[in-house]
């Protein structure tokens, strides 16, 4: 699979300018001799991330967004007849309920197909983050079938909870696609922001534990003083970062994915297979039964 991770740097709220910029990127990618199979964009790639109440003005209806992106791709000079898959993070308006979502879209010569929409489940609402003040959270984590095998999408904080990639892997995902918008913080560490280092550590550990490719697309640019850390990367199923873009600025990461590496990695380190056999013992455990877990891990107050 020939992959482009587009580290977008949108103009806040200027959807038309951002579509125009995406059209230019499409034209650049379409001009390459060998066509791309997949193009992955970050979270909130067409609007910017911190919108507050502006999200209600800038949320997309999924069908309309899919049609517009497909048309934009087809309008690119040199766009090949071969299908291309596009992943983009966006704010979704689902009949007046709003989500932070990611669209997996397959664009063919004369048609397009919405393969999957993932609605972000973990909405960061602490410190600088305020998502659940404005958005509803998704209620389902799915793995879904693409032309390139089974994948799952996790949006930003979704991927800071180790259970999410674990469940995605159990559900059969071989590729984890992570659109993200991560404001940088922590300048004490040598040569790398602490938040970027954390991302690298968790994604590499998921990739090696489950033998998955991880495609991370990070938003770039400053939003009201908060600098998004880009650092878009491809991580192989051995846990190695194949390539990574810098934190600052718009850029494209071009990479080839050989899916047979997943089998090699899983044969070498069969942790996912081990998990599959132990999982029933872990899940069907009295400690995890609803009356003991309660919602959110809260324990009853004992008098």
């Amino acid at each position: 699979m020939k992959l482009a991770i587009v580290q977008a740097k949108p103009r806040k709220g200027d959807v038309e300018a951002n579509f125009a910029a995406l059209g230019e990127v499409f034209a650049q990618l379409a001009s390459e001799e060998r066509p791309y199979d997949a193009i992955v964009l970050p979270e909130a790639a067409l609007t910017g991330y911190f919108l507050e109440g502006g999200v209600y003005e800038l949320a997309f209806e999924t069908e309309a967004l899919a049609a517009r992106i497909a048309a934009l791709w087809r309008a690119a000079p040199g766009a090949s007849r071969a299908p291309v898959d596009v992943v983009v993070g966006f704010f979704e308006n689902a009949g007046g309920t709003f989500y932070n979502a990611a669209l997996y879209l397959e664009i063919a010569e004369a048609s397009h197909r919405i393969v999957h929409v993932h609605r972000k489940m973990f909405l960061p609402t602490y410190g600088v983050f305020d998502e659940e003040r404005f958005l509803s959270r998704g209620r389902h984590l799915a793995a879904f079938d693409t032309r390139f095998g089974r994948m799952a999408m996790l949006i930003c904080e979704d991927a800071w909870h180790a259970i999410m990639p674990t469940l995605a892997a159990i559900k059969g995902a071989r590729v984890l696609v992570v659109p993200s918008a991560s404001p940088g913080r922590g300048f004490a560490a040598g040569g790398e922001l602490e938040s970027v280092a954390h991302w690298r550590n968790v994604l590499q550990s998921y990739a090696v534990e489950h033998g998955m490719f991880v495609i991370y697309a990070g938003l770039a640019g400053f939003e009201g003083g908060k600098g998004m850390t880009g650092s878009s990367a491809l991580i192989d199923p051995f846990g190695d970062t194949v390539a990574r873009l810098p934190a600052l600025g718009a850029a494209v990461l071009r990479a080839e994915i050989d899916f047979s590496e997943i089998d090699v990695a899983r044969a070498r380190l069969p942790l996912l297979g081990d998990l599959g056999s132990v999982l029933p013992d872990l899940l069907f455990d009295d400690d995890l039964m609803p009356e003991n877990v309660r919602r959110g891990g809260e324990r009853p107050v004992t008098p």
Binding site: K12, G13, G48, F50, L51, E52, G53, G54, E223, G224
Partner: peptide, 8 residues
């Protein structure tokens, strides 16, 4: 109530 970021 009316909440818009500084760069909106």
């Amino acid at each position: 109530f009316y909440l818009r970021p500084v760069d909106f």
